[in-house]
Design a protein around this nucleic acid. Structure first.
Lengths: 199, 199
DNA sequence: CTGTACATGTAAGTAGTTACATGATTGG
DNA sequence: CCAATCATGTAACTACTTACATGTACAG
């Protein structure tokens, strides 16, 4: 949380909180299904991040007493948290420290950003992958070594990069074709459909 | 390094040492090109792992004094290191803690193992990805939420998994078709072609 | 005369892990 | 009766990162 920018983990938690008020337990459960593919921190990690966000003024806590179940703490974004989330989503990193996963992770939360932001992340992802592709293609390859498996593994990388580039093209087209719609509110007092805390 | 098995990082360093005697500096440089796609530890990390391997009897050091350049330490596998590397390569983890990257990482070093080992890793990778595929397909998907981007990101995951499965098929075929060849010796006293320390 | 390659290492810090502790309720 | 779900948190540890310290030699 250096400056006004947040780390990947903090950004992801802010993003999840944008869907509505949640407990640490809720977040851990939701992370398994959904972004689990991209980012699955342990429960204890989430319990460490949440108070940090509150201390930084990005989230607010509310203690809820329950009879049948243990008491819990519900967290929601503060106004400043919403701004920081937007800034994090809008920031397109050219060479993210956390690797390529940064791009799909931010895209996951782009319902809380503008269409331009989503397209900018996709464009950044494309540039990133094209640089990788060039590097892989520049590697010595078969010629030099008697070893065979390194080449197979390189093919694995090339396959993944190429199929991801194809996905980017499709997704850009889908985003551009989608009916223009206001971005989702970050659930301040928006109509609730299903209930956040009940189950 | 609990028991006789090694961690991912230790396995990878053992694997790199199987290509020949190397200094920490060499390993860091080589890791950038080649396995860099799968595993790129910092120099300081490598300098920490190497003495650990020596302490565990898996590698041997040799100090080399140089005039023009700083002195250096060259590491090579010990007999026990070779056995542990083989065991690591042969072990097919069903749900590796370090994620899917374990499979291509071990495959990278399969020139030092039998063809059966390579095919076993590929088969394990396939099972792993097919479980992922089922999970992704079981996810609620479009219906539930007004959010659109989570679905796009899910497509990203599906695309990657499917293209990797296709690569596995191709690679299995290539491995089976390859002319049977003895596995590479782990460069004990094998003929050297190019020189390890000179450049 | 500046930057890069060679070469090793320490120090301080972040991110993340597993295992432990506690304790009620519900479903099979 | 046993296991899972709900709920939060601490402690100890591993992996890994950046920045710093040190110093030579060669290329542009």
């Amino acid at each position: 949380m250096r400056g006004s920018t947040v780390s990947t983990t903090e950004g992801a938690v802010l993003g999840l909180l944008a869907f509505g008020e949640r407990s640490g337990y809720d977040l851990a459960r939701e992370a398994e299904t959904g972004i689990g593919y991209l980012w699955t921190p342990s429960r204890s990690q989430i319990y460490k991040v949440l108070p940090r966000l509150v201390a930084a003024g990005l989230a607010e806590v509310r203690e809820v007493e329950q009879d049948a179940r243990p008491d819990k703490a519900l967290y929601k974004l503060s106004a400043r948290g919403r701004r920081v989330l937007s800034a994090w989503l809008e920031e397109v990193e050219e060479e993210p420290a956390s690797g390529r996963v940064t791009f799909p992770l931010k895209l996951f939360f782009c319902d809380f950003a503008s269409r331009e932001t989503a397209l900018a992340q996709l464009a950044g992802y494309r540039r990133f992958l094209e640089r990788r592709l060039e590097e892989y293609e520049r590697l010595p390859g078969a010629a030099r070594s008697p070893a065979r498996y390194p080449d197979h593994v390189l093919q694995h990388g090339l396959t993944r990069v190429r199929s991801t580039l194809a996905w980017i093209d499709e997704t850009v087209a889908a985003v551009e074709a989608a009916s223009p719609r206001t971005k989702l509110t970050t659930r301040r007092s928006a109509a609730r459909r299903g209930g956040t805390s009940s189950r």
